[in-house]
Simulated scan of single mutants.
Amino acid sequence: MPSLREAQKQLTRDRIVERALKLFTEKGYAATTIDEIAAAAGTTRVTFYAYYPSRYDLMRDFMARVNAVLDRENGPGLASTAPELVDVVRAGKLSGILDWLESRAALWPDFRPYLDVLDEAAAVDREVRALLKDWREEVISDLIRGMQLAGRFSEETHHVRGMLAFTQLNYISTLWTSRRFDPNRDEALGVLAESWYHLLCDED
């Protein structure tokens, strides 16, 4: 059980992240200053830097929160960061793919805003760009692992298949964030599931 001091530190960290997310969403990543974030969080610039020595450290926390929501393991060198996704691809069932996509779509309100900020930050910050690229490659590697375990498709096509599948999912979830197709989410997920099935599972 965390000590009172540790709990207070976590509350401060959470407050900084929440206010930063709101400001980045409203004003944009580049236009938001550290002073504005600190003031919105009810703290000081000095306190902000005690928790986050740089904007990059704040973005790393954003990414950690995305992984926590998605129940993805942190850390390079793991055999898989999301075993459930590997299993779904290996099984190769359209119904299983759709169920997995729907379970992730239910979490979009919790993690997609963080990813949107990370995408925007990546456009102006090389370190964040590398962070986001590594995360995307982790997701793609899980898709690849599922195909490998199933002995499906040639190795030469695995990465492009995984990349296309991830890009499709990212695009659909980005559209949802911008509220361009919220009423048609189920239809979009159905189409996406069929596309994933043909890309990752169907060799006929």
Rank of each mutant, 00 (worst) to 15 (best):
T174E: 15
F166P: 04
G92I: 10
A7F: 06
Q10P: 00
L21P: 10
D186M: 07
G28S: 08
M63N: 03
P183M: 07
A7G: 00
I140E: 09
R145P: 00
A105N: 04
Y52C: 04
V66G: 00
M147K: 09
E194M: 08
A106I: 02
A64W: 06
W176T: 03
R65H: 03
Q8D: 04
I140P: 03
A188H: 11
E18I: 08
G42A: 04
R13H: 01
G190M: 09
F24C: 03
R136P: 05
E203W: 04
F181W: 12
S95E: 15
D110Y: 00
I140N: 02
L11W: 13
F48E: 02
Y171K: 09
A122G: 15
G42H: 06
F166E: 12
Y49T: 10
L85F: 14
H198R: 14
P83A: 01
E203K: 09
P53Q: 05
D119A: 10
E26T: 13
N74T: 07
D204I: 04
R13E: 07
A7K: 13
R15L: 08
P113C: 06
I97K: 07
R45T: 13
R185Y: 06
Y51W: 12
W196V: 05
D35L: 03
T25F: 03
W100V: 01
H198L: 11
S154P: 00
G146I: 09
G96F: 10
W100M: 07
Q168K: 05
E155V: 12
V89E: 12
T25W: 03
C201K: 06
R145V: 03
F181N: 13
L199F: 12
Q8T: 02
A64G: 01
Y56A: 01
D110T: 00
F181C: 13
L58D: 02
V191G: 06
E127F: 11
R185I: 15
M63G: 00
A79W: 14
D134I: 01
R126V: 13
P53G: 01
